[in-house]
C-alpha cells in the first residue's frame, strides 16, 4: 500500500510516541484501553511486550518505542493501549500497541498527505505510509500492515540456554 491508494477523506486517530505524532485510520482501531499489567512472553522479541486480557481474550501488545529503537515505554497516567484490527488472509489479527498518549480523531483529505520523505526522519521509512500535518506538526501515517507483519512479530529470540547442563 502506498500513499496513492488513499483517495478519500478519512478519520484518523492521532497519538504520541515520545515527542512525535503518529496516526492510524480509525477503521483499524477497535478500542483504546488504559495501561494494565502486561504478562511477559518468553522467547519473543523485546518489542513484543507480552499479552493482556481484553474481556476474556488474550491479546499481544507491541511496544512501538522499542520497535522504533527508543527506550522501553515506562507506563505513565497518560499511557494507553490502542487495540487494532488488521485483516490479513481472511483472518483478523488483533493487536495492542502502546502509546505515550492518545490525542484526538481528525479528518485528513488525501491531498493533505505527502509521501514519506526519503531521509531526515528517525523512523524506518517502510513503516510510514505518508506524512500529514496536524496543528503545524508533522504527523506520520503508520502502515500497520507492514508494521505488524507476521514475519516480524513472530521472530523468535534465542532462548537463554540453561548453562552448565549436568
Amino acid at each position: 500500500m502506498t500513499v496513492d491508494t488513499i483517495t478519500q477523506t478519512a478519520h484518523y486517530l492521532t497519538f504520541k510516541i515520545d515527542e512525535e505524532y503518529f496516526t492510524v485510520n480509525v477503521h483499524s482501531v477497535r478500542e483504546i484501553l488504559e495501561y494494565s499489567k502486561i504478562t511477559k512472553m518468553p522467547d519473543a522479541p523485546p518489542f513484543m511486550r507480552g499479552i493482556i486480557n481484553v474481556r476474556g481474550s488474550v491479546i499481544p501488545v507491541i511496544d512501538l518505542r522499542l520497535k522504533f529503537g527508543m527506550e522501553e515505554t515506562i507506563p505513565k497516567s497518560s499511557t494507553r493501549i490502542i487495540v487494532m484490527e488488521i485483516a490479513r488472509e481472511g483472518k483478523t489479527l488483533v493487536i495492542g500497541s502502546l502509546a505515550d498518549s492518545v490525542k484526538e480523531v481528525i479528518e485528513i483529505a488525501p491531498e493533505q498527505i505527502e509521501p514519506p520523505p526519503e531521509m531526515g526522519t528517525r523512523w524506518k521509512k517502510d513503516y510510514i505510509l505518508g506524512v500529514g500535518k496536524y496543528q503545524d506538526e508533522f504527523i506520520m501515517l503508520l502502515d500497520i500492515k507492514k508494521l505488524f507483519s507476521i514475519d516480524e512479530l513472530t521472530r523468535i529470540n534465542q532462548p537463554c540456554t540453561d548453562e552448565d547442563d549436568s
Binding site: S36, K37, M41, I51, N53, G56, V58, P60, I150
Partner: peptide, 27 residues
C-alpha cells in the same frame, strides 16, 4: 485455556494462556 494466537505460535514452551481471578494473564 486461551489460545495465544498467531503472533506467539513459535513460542513452543508455552501452550496457552489463562485469565486469573484478578483479570491478569498467566501462561
Amino acid at each position: 485455556i486461551k489460545p495465544l494466537g498467531e503472533v506467539y505460535k513459535k513460542v513452543e514452551c508455552i501452550s496457552g494462556a489463562t485469565i486469573l481471578g484478578d483479570g491478569t494473564v498467566a501462561l
